[in-house]
Amino acid sequence: MEMCDDIYANVDTIQPSASKTTADQNPKSSPGYQHSGRKLYRWTAVCLGLLCVLLLTAITLLCIHYNGVVNETMEKHRELSETLSLLTANYTAERDQLETINTILKKQRDQLSIDKDRFQKIISELAVESRVGSYKALLRGIGEFPFPQGAQPCQLQLSGENAIPLAVSPSGHVLLAASRYGRGKVVVAAHEDYIQGAIVIPAFGQFVKNAIEWLKPHSHAAVGVSGMSYLADHLTKSGFKVKSISNYDGTVGVFCREAYSDEQVQEVLDFVRGGGGLLIGGQAWHWASQDPGLDVLQEFPGNKFTRPAGISFTSKYADRGTFKVPQEIPIL
C-alpha cells in the first residue's frame, strides 16, 4: 500500500518537469524571442527610411542638375539664335552688296567691251595710217625705179599685215619691201646691187636715204655698214654718221648687210626687235641653184633675218625694167 502511494507521489513530481520541457521546446512563445523580433522590425524600418531619404536626396540633386542643364541649354540656344540672326542679317547685307557690285561690274564690262571695240577700230585705222605713212616716207621724191638688166633680182614673198610692198612689177613681182618687227624696222631689196647702186642710180640713191631715215630709231643714230663700201661712201656723202663694221657690234642704230651669211642671226633679230633698223639686200635664185635640195624659205641665210618680219627671198626670177611708183600701196 505504501509502495503504491510512493509511485503516485513520484508521478505527481515528474509531471511539472514534462510541462517545462514542452515549454522549452516552443521558442516563439518565449519572451526573449518576441523581443528579438521586435528589434529586427525596427532595424528594417530604419533602413527603409534611410533608403527613402537617399532616394529623395538623389532625386532632388538630379532635379537641380537637370534644371541647370536645361537653363544652360536654353541660354546656348538663345545665344545661337542671336548669332544665327546676326549672321543672317550680315549674309543678307553682304548678298545685297555683292549683287550691287555684280551689277556695277557688268556695266563696267559692257563699257569695256564698247571701249575695246572702239580702240581696236582706232588701232586698225592707225595701222593703216602707219602703213600709208611708211610707204610715203620710204618713196618720197621717187617717181619710178629703173631696175637694170645687169642684175637679176629674185621675187620677194610677203606675209603678215606689217609687210609693205614698195616696188612691184606689172606682173606682181615684189622687188623692194619694208616691214616692222617688234619695235624695230626692216627694209629688203631683191638684189644687193639696188643698195650698192645707190651711188650711181639717183632713184636708188634717194630710196636708200629715205630707208635709213625711216630705219633710224633716233635722229643721231649711227649707221653700221658691213661689206658694202659703195653704200658706206654714199651714206657718208649724204651726211649720215657711218661706221664700217664686219659684224653688228651694238654701237649703231641701223645695220646694213648682204643676205648671203647667217652670222649673228639671233643678235641682229634681238637688235631689231628692240628698236633697231636693218637694211638687207640679196637674191636667192643663185643660192638655190647651188643647193637644189634645200628649202629656200627656211634655209637661205637672208631669210633667217627677214622672214620673222614677214618678208622672204625666193628662188624665182623677178621682172626687170622701169616701174612706176604708185601713189597708193600696191595690192598684191
Rank of each mutant, 00 (worst) to 15 (best):
A177K: 09
K28T: 05
I311R: 07
V46A: 13
V53S: 08
S124Y: 05
I123Q: 09
S130R: 12
A318P: 00
E258W: 05
S169K: 00
I201R: 14
P326Q: 01
C63F: 08
Q155L: 06
R78I: 04
L50C: 13
L278W: 00
D249M: 03
L112M: 13
L235V: 06
S312D: 08
G160K: 02
G68W: 05
N71T: 13
I59F: 05
H191F: 05
N90F: 02
R131Y: 08
E328S: 10
Q152L: 06
E125M: 08
L156N: 02
I212P: 05
A232K: 10
T103A: 15
K185Y: 09
D270C: 08
A232Y: 02
G160F: 00
N26Y: 12
G133E: 06
S19Q: 12
A45E: 11
P153S: 05
V200K: 12
Y33T: 10
H234L: 11
K136T: 15
G133R: 13
Q120M: 03
D110K: 14
N162A: 08
H286N: 07
K243Q: 15
P146H: 14
D233C: 10
T60P: 00
N102W: 07
G227I: 05
Q97Y: 14
I329H: 04
L126E: 11
K106R: 15
D115P: 02
Q108Y: 13
V252D: 00
K209E: 15
S124F: 02
I199K: 09
V296H: 03
E263S: 13
M228R: 09
L278A: 00
S159V: 03
P330M: 02
Y260M: 06
R42M: 06
A211G: 03
I199G: 00
V223H: 05
E79P: 00
I101F: 14
A23N: 10
D291M: 11
F240P: 07
I59C: 08
Q196H: 14
G160T: 03
V254I: 01
S229T: 15
L51M: 12
D291P: 01
S134E: 02
L332I: 14
